[in-house]
Amino acid sequence: MSKDVMVTLTVDGLEISVPRGTKLLKACLDNGIYIPSLCYLDGMDHPPASCRLCLVEIEGRPGPLPSCSQTVEDGMVVHTETDEVRLLQKTAFRLLVSTNDGKCRLCMANKHCEMQKIAKFLHMPLRTKKLRHIPKDMPEVIEEHPCIVYEPNKCVLCGRCVYICSQQNYDFALDFAKRGFNTTISFFGSREEGVGDYCRNCRACVDICPVGALNLKDERDAFLQNLQAKISA
């Protein structure tokens, strides 16, 4: 490819070439350099930059920066493994699990959960001892939607589901609600006539959720039954 469409940069000493305009996080992931991330999805113009896991340091720029929100530039020199980056990633991770229910074996996402992957990468336990466990002040299971089940204590509020729904459906059927520590995902109105027509049961949100906080009710029931059977057996 010609020079104007490709950009060459150095990540952890490795030279990589990617199309101009690519986000740094994607550039790294595409080239086999793993950076933990939760909230970024391919194709986002303005990534939310909210999970704060994808931090890197770029020479000549102040402080760790979220790689999902940096666009690659020629000659960029990037470090993904500095002490400060790791420290912050570990804290962010610890904060996320401090609100989590930690019941991996009872979870449908067990073994393919993004948090488990990140835990392995950062050498972190899935339960923090350093911080107190602060569960969200919400029911364990919320069945607001006629066929989707939401578990707030698993949710990491990455917002992938909100984004994907807005992409798949012109009118999206779920959104954030409340604020701060009590922020949650809401399907408000999904049962109401007229208002509830927005959900097309495309299960995009269920599939995109990195942690298994959203599940189809039927599938979850079957999974739990199965689990019950296994336990009693």
Binding site: S50, R52, T91, S98, G180, F181
Partner: peptide, 21 residues
């Protein structure tokens, strides 16, 4: 601040909550 945090990013949403605790 933890009450007024928008809840978007991890450090502020959960970090300030731990500080408060």
């Amino acid at each position: 601040t933890q009450h007024e945090s928008c809840g978007k990013c991890t450090f502020c949403r959960i970090g300030t909550r731990h500080l408060l605790e």
